[in-house]
C-alpha cells in the first residue's frame, strides 16, 4: 500500500494527491511518470510525477477524472492507500541551457511542465509558462509556476481569466514579440500539442511534446504504447514519453487512444451503478476524455 498523505481538489475534476513513495521520490527527475494501480483488481494507468520530496519520501500526482480508474483514484482521501505505485518510469526531460524556454501546458498537462520549469530555470534559462484551461477554475498550478518561472500567462477559452483564447494564440505572439525562444515543451490534450507543433514549425524552434498513449506495463514489455515518430515505431514508455513534436504522428496517436471507448463507457456505467458515493463531488464524467478538458 502506498499511503496518501494529502489530497485536495485543484479544479473541478482535478485532484492533487501527495503519496508516500520514497523509492520513487529519491530518483524522480522532470519528465518521469509512475504506473499506478488503485486497488487489487484495478487497471494499471500512467501518471506524471508533478513534484517530489525526497526528504519526506513523497511524490505529487495531479489527476483529472476522465473515466472509471481516475474517478476511483480521485475519490480517495488522505490516510487511504493506493495498491501499487511503480516508477519512476520513462526518460527524463533533457534539461539544458537554451536561453529562453517556453512551456505550454493544457489542463493536467500543466502537471508535466511544472517540474520541467523549475529544472530549466535552475540551469539559467529564462522560463515562460503558458497555461490553458476552459475557464478560470480549470487553470491549475499558476501560483506554483510563478515561483519558478519568469512569466506565467494563463489563457482561458471563455475569457473568464487571463488571455481570452487558446494557448497557441498566446504562444504565436510570444514567439513574434520576443524572437528568442530556443525551446518549447508542451504537454496536454493531443490536439493542443499538435497545434503547438504547427505554431513552432515555421520558426524551426525545437519543440518537445509529452505523449500520452495507452500503457499497460510501462517497462517496454507490451508494445501497447507504440507511437510513430519520424516514420519509426517507438515505445513511449521506454523511448519517451517525450518526443520531437515536429515528427510525431499525432493523428495516429489520437486514433489509437479511442481503442477502448466502448469498454471505458461500460466501466464508467458499472462504477456508477455500484454507487461510489459523493467522491466525484458531483463532477460529471465526459467520455471524450482528455481532449474535452482543456483548450486547443
Amino acid at each position: 500500500m502506498f499511503k496518501i498523505v494529502q489530497a485536495e481538489w485543484l479544479a473541478p475534476k482535478v485532484r492533487r494527491l501527495m503519496v508516500e513513495a520514497p523509492r520513487v521520490a529519491r530518483r524522480h527527475q522532470p519528465g518521469h511518470f509512475v504506473i499506478v494501480r488503485v486497488h487489487e483488481e484495478g487497471e494499471r494507468i500512467p501518471l506524471t510525477i508533478a513534484d517530489s520530496d525526497a526528504g519526506h519520501g513523497t511524490i505529487t500526482l495531479i489527476v483529472q477524472v476522465v473515466g472509471a480508474t481516475t474517478e476511483r483514484l480521485c475519490g480517495l482521501e488522505a490516510g487511504e492507500g493506493i495498491s501499487n505505485v511503480a516508477g519512476p518510469l520513462g526518460r527524463p526531460t533533457d534539461i539544458e541551457y537554451v536561453g529562453h524556454a517556453v512551456l505550454v501546458g493544457g489542463g493536467v498537462g500543466t502537471a508535466v511542465i511544472y517540474p520541467q520549469a523549475a529544472a530549466l530555470r535552475e540551469v539559467g534559462n529564462r522560463v515562460t509558462a503558458v497555461i490553458g484551461g476552459r475557464s478560470r477554475e480549470y487553470v491549475i498550478l499558476e501560483a506554483e509556476l510563478a515561483q519558478c518561472c519568469d512569466d506565467v500567462f494563463p489563457c482561458t477559452d471563455d475569457g473568464s481569466y487571463g488571455y481570452h483564447g487558446f494557448v497557441t494564440g498566446w504562444l504565436k505572439d510570444l514567439i513574434d514579440d520576443t524572437g528568442d525562444v530556443g525551446l518549447v515543451l508542451t504537454a496536454g490534450p493531443v490536439p493542443m500539442m499538435r497545434a503547438v507543433a504547427e505554431v513552432t514549425r515555421p520558426h524551426g524552434i525545437r519543440t518537445i511534446a509529452s505523449l500520452n498513449p495507452i500503457m499497460v506495463d510501462g517497462t517496454g514489455m507490451c508494445g501497447g504504447c507504440r507511437v510513430t515518430v519520424d516514420g519509426q515505431m517507438k515505445f513511449a514508455c521506454v523511448d519517451g514519453p517525450e518526443f520531437d513534436a515536429h515528427t510525431v504522428d499525432f493523428a495516429g496517436l489520437t486514433d489509437r487512444l479511442t481503442t477502448y471507448r466502448n469498454q471505458e463507457q461500460l466501466a464508467w456505467n458499472r462504477l456508477h451503478e455500484t454507487a461510489l458515493g459523493d467522491h466525484s463531488r458531483g463532477a460529471h464524467c465526459q467520455m471524450s476524455g482528455l481532449e474535452a478538458a482543456a483548450p486547443v
Partner: peptide, 14 residues
C-alpha cells in the same frame, strides 16, 4: 501495425 485491433501477443496476454 498501428491500427486499432493490432496487438503484440505480450500485450494481449498481459
Amino acid at each position: 501495425e498501428n491500427l486499432k485491433g493490432v496487438y503484440s501477443a505480450n500485450e494481449f496476454l498481459t
